[in-house]
Simulated assay, not measured.
Amino acid sequence: MKLTLEAIKIIDTIAKSGSFSKASEILHKAPSTISYSVAKIEEQMGFKFFERNGPHVTLTELGTVLLEEGRTLLTAVTDLETRLNKMASGVEVSLNIALDAIFPMERVASLLSRFKTSQVATEVNISREVMMGAWEALLKFRADIIVAVGEGPSGGGYSTYPIGVVPFIFCVAPYHPLAKKEGILTKCDLLDHTAIIVTDSARYMPLRTVGVYEGQKRITVSTLEDKILLQKRGIGHGFVPKYAVRHELKSGELIELPVMEAHKEENLYLAWRTHDEGLALSWWKEALAEEWIK
């Protein structure tokens, strides 16, 4: 191979600095070494990369084409070296975190700010899942660490740590028909009206459904935010995490109603694959557990 990465780097440095002498200073090489390297590659390739004008040089058309492609190669190699060094030092190149929809993103935002100031230079990718979707993301290697609800599937291969519980309340818009009902709402009361539910995001595992009865009229959405919006509009009813509607309850956009069959608290778990122990994963395990306890 006539054209090497080292040659591209030398040519790139000369082009950016504007002269062979400045390039030699930047690369910590003797000017004669720089001149010889360029002359050799030009001789081997059979064309010129630079137009000489005394001590100053400019790229030829072919030199410009070379660097348009060559700089991409140099960047790719630099990125690869960085990734390999991080892996060798126990620092992951990236960390994929899957959060169940009921885990407050505001808590993650504060952790991201802290993580940016840490010494762990790992790219963080965050996704949202619902119910069994988070567990599936972990087992299918779409996530490295998750915050999930309920017990995980059988089979092992992962570790868990309980971090808390999420209480649920039943609420509707103040002008919803159920808001006019007196006393505790029964199953029959709820079956008379449409429920808004967030669908389980699992793609392959058995889906889980909570807060809805068999034969219930329903509208299914993919996010908790959409569910809350539709309930605020009076389109349907449903159970929601209490923390998620505290502002709506305070403003009167939603009201809490007593029901005969309440939604049980959901247990939250951290989970990660048993043999994954990088620095970023360790940081986030500790941080997520502490953040919920607060």
Rank of each mutant, 00 (worst) to 15 (best):
C188Y: 14
C188R: 11
L190C: 02
L190K: 12
L190P: 00
L190R: 08
L191V: 10
L191C: 04
L191Y: 01
L191P: 00
L191W: 05
D192L: 14
D192M: 13
D192I: 04
H193D: 05
H193F: 14
H193L: 10
T194W: 04
T194S: 10
A195E: 03
I196E: 00
I196S: 02
I197D: 00
I197L: 10
I197Q: 03
I197E: 02
V198G: 02
D200M: 04
D200N: 12
S201Q: 03
S201H: 04
A202M: 02
R203H: 04
R203D: 06
Y204G: 03
Y204W: 08
Y204I: 14
Y204V: 14
Y204R: 14
M205F: 15
M205D: 01
M205I: 12
P206A: 11
P206N: 11
P206I: 05
P206L: 10
P206W: 06
L207I: 13
L207G: 08
L207S: 12
R208A: 09
T209N: 12
T209L: 11
T209I: 12
V210Y: 00
G211V: 03
G211D: 03
G211H: 04
V212Y: 00
V212R: 06
V212T: 12
Y213D: 07
Y213M: 04
Y213H: 08
E214L: 14
G215N: 08
G215T: 02
G215C: 08
G215R: 00
Q216D: 03
Q216C: 04
Q216T: 03
K217V: 05
K217G: 11
K217F: 08
R218L: 13
R218W: 01
R218N: 06
R218D: 09
I219V: 15
I219P: 00
I219W: 01
T220R: 12
T220D: 05
V221Q: 02
V221G: 02
S222F: 11
S222K: 09
S222E: 14
T223M: 03
T223Q: 07
L224I: 13
E225R: 07
E225H: 11
D226L: 06
D226F: 01
D226V: 02
D226Q: 13
K227F: 01
K227I: 02
K227M: 10
K227R: 13
K227G: 06
I228Q: 05
L229Q: 15
L229D: 11
L230T: 10
L230V: 09
Q231T: 12
K232T: 13
R233V: 05
R233M: 15
R233D: 10
R233W: 09
G234R: 06
G234Q: 06
G234K: 03
G234T: 07
G234F: 10
G234W: 06
I235V: 15
I235L: 14
I235R: 04
G236H: 03
H237Y: 10
G238W: 00
G238Q: 02
G238V: 01
G238R: 01
F239Y: 15
V240K: 00
V240Q: 03
P241D: 03
P241W: 00
K242H: 14
K242G: 11
K242S: 14
K242A: 13
Y243F: 14
Y243L: 10
A244Q: 08
A244N: 08
A244R: 08
V245G: 01
V245L: 04
R246D: 13
R246S: 15
R246N: 13
H247Q: 15
L249H: 05
L249I: 11
L249T: 11
K250V: 02
S251P: 06
S251F: 08
G252M: 07
G252I: 09
